[in-house]
Design a protein around this nucleic acid. Structure first.
Length: 426
RNA sequence: GGAAGAGUGGCAGAGCUGGUUUAAUGCACCGGUCUUGAAAACCGGCGUGGGUUACACCACCGGGGGUUCGAAUCCCUCCUCUUCCGCCA
């Protein structure tokens, strides 16, 4: 959620940003509308405060009058107060409506992209930040996609998943399951070595938590909801991890806060179809290790690059062909100011698969969740939040299975072997 | 799930027979005096948000609602914690 002060003080920048994100005409009109409503809100608040002041003062006088036995005079004042109260009640209703309206409108505005975000509307407009062509794999002509490998070695059963739950819920078997566990440990250990603190958060959270990181009201339809308890299954560990510091006021030397956690993630993925959902490409339940940082505004972009480097290091260690994309304005998420996507090359499919997305949200999330810190001069300011996948498992597994396949079986990347306890899947 | 008790500013802890408590006091913290320096002592400051050029002023005593001229204080409801009972990995 954007800050109203930003709309007021840097309106040109906001309008430019909305254009870069290819917002509809209505979004531009919203900016002025929100400012106008906020002006009205201030006026209403001031008038209401005046009335409340009168009520407070008169009530004090009434108390004094009763004490000194002047009941009739007190009763006169009572009537007076009752009149003011009616007026105040109306203003209160107006005020509440204004506040609700402002929130409803401003929530519809996306974050403003950073200067360095490229222009463009489509994924093809993203700029390739790095592409290591020398490592592109050359597979045998009879190379097969990961879903066939999974079946061949009986390490993942999509069929059983369908029996148990439905499409998009694979069952990992034997070395398939152990490979998953190895990846989780590898990613967590790497994050810990980089200075992150490991958390094991709840994977079901309440409405307020979903609201604070922006999943609600925006992505209601993409999430699993437990109706009886009005709780939601998390789509990413970002949600509980960032919310740990909801409503907090940090001190400057708390920065940077570095959190990591492994969780299953749940996404309904309504509207997806075709080759996108084949095999492990897109699932309803998957495993992911997330890294989150909460940082001082002055340092957040350095931190973003560090996080990108951390993720890059992971795919390098796994020796997977990858590229990094700087997302263009039109392809970025609603809440992000700057995003780098990582894609690994799934050789048998001949496809780039997104395995990580690393973003700086600046104050977009912290504003919604009131995550602040105390400045040198004692004032509270909003902190910057950042997060990234490090990494999401299914597509990494898909890439490993396809790129490491040989006639004798699938080799296990060297760095994983101490976690798997075996070096080939056959 | 049932019963009882409790939720106050970073912490501790008053207030809870409704009106000099619209939040006392202590600790912690920050600044100052004193001191070669430090400790102690003393003086001052010390919640969040709205609002204002700045004040004034307003809201918030777990969340929400109500009674009243006036609510931390009374009522309703929800949440959380503690203890006991029941159930159970």
């Amino acid at each position: 959620m954007l800050e109203i002060s930003l709309l007021r003080e840097q309106k040109e920048r906001v309008l430019k940003g909305l254009k870069k994100k290819h917002q509809p005409e209505s979004a531009f009109l919203l900016v002025d509308e929100v400012i106008r409503m906020d002006d009205e809100r201030k006026q209403t608040q001031t008038r209401l405060d005046g009335l409340l002041f009168q009520i407070n003062t008169l009530s004090g006088q009434i108390g004094d009058l009763f004490k000194t036995g002047k009941a009739s005079e007190a009763n006169d004042l009572k009537n007076q107060v009752n009149n003011i109260k009616e007026e105040a009640k109306e203003l209160e209703i107006t005020l509440k409506q204004l506040k609700d309206n402002i929130e409803e409108q401003i929530i519809a505005l996306p974050n403003i992209p950073n200067e360095s975000v490229p222009e463009g509307r489509l994924p093809s407009d993203n700029t390739v930040h790095f592409l290591d062509e020398s490592d592109m794999p050359s597979l045998d002509v009879d190379a097969i996609p990961h879903w066939e490998i999974a079946e061949k070695y009986n390490i993942i059963s999509f069929k059983s998943g369908v029996t148990l739950t439905g499409a998009g819920y694979p069952l990992y078997i034997n070395k398939g399951a152990r490979l998953q566990r190895a990846l989780i440990n590898f990613f967590l250990e790497e994050a810990i070595a980089a200075g992150y603190t490991e958390y094991q958060p709840p994977i079901i959270v309440n409405k307020e938590t979903m609201r604070a990181t922006g999943q609600l009201p925006d992505k209601e339809g993409q999430m699993y909801h437990c109706e009886k308890d009005d709780l939601y299954l998390i789509p990413t560990a970002e949600v509980p991890l960032t919310n740990i510091y909801r409503d907090a006021i940090l001190s400057k030397n708390d920065f940077p806060l570095m959190l990591t956690g492994y969780t299953p993630c749940f996404r309904r993925e309504a509207g997806s179809y075709g080759s996108d959902v084949k095999g492990l490409n897109r699932l309803h339940q998957f495993d992911k290790i997330e890294i989150v940082q909460i940082q001082h505004p002055d340092d957040s972009y350095n931190t973003l690059m560090e996080m990108v480097q951390h993720v890059e290091n992971l795919v390098k260690k796994l020796k997977l062909p990858y590229r990094i994309l700087r997302l263009c304005g039109g392809d970025m998420s609603f809440a992000s100011a700057l995003t780098f996507d990582f894609e690994t090359y799934s050789a048998a499919q001949g496809k780039w698969l997104e395995v990580s997305s690393v973003s700086n949200f600046e104050t977009f999330q912290s504003n919604r969740m009131k995550l602040r810190f105390r400045d040198e001069d004692g004032k509270t300011r909003l902190a910057h939040t950042l997060n990234g996948s490090a990494l999401a498992l299914p597509r990494i597994v898909a890439t490993i299975l396809e790129n490491y396949q040989t006639k004798d079986g699938v080799l296990v990347p060297e760095v994983l072997q101490k976690y798997t306890g075996f070096n080939i899947i056959n």
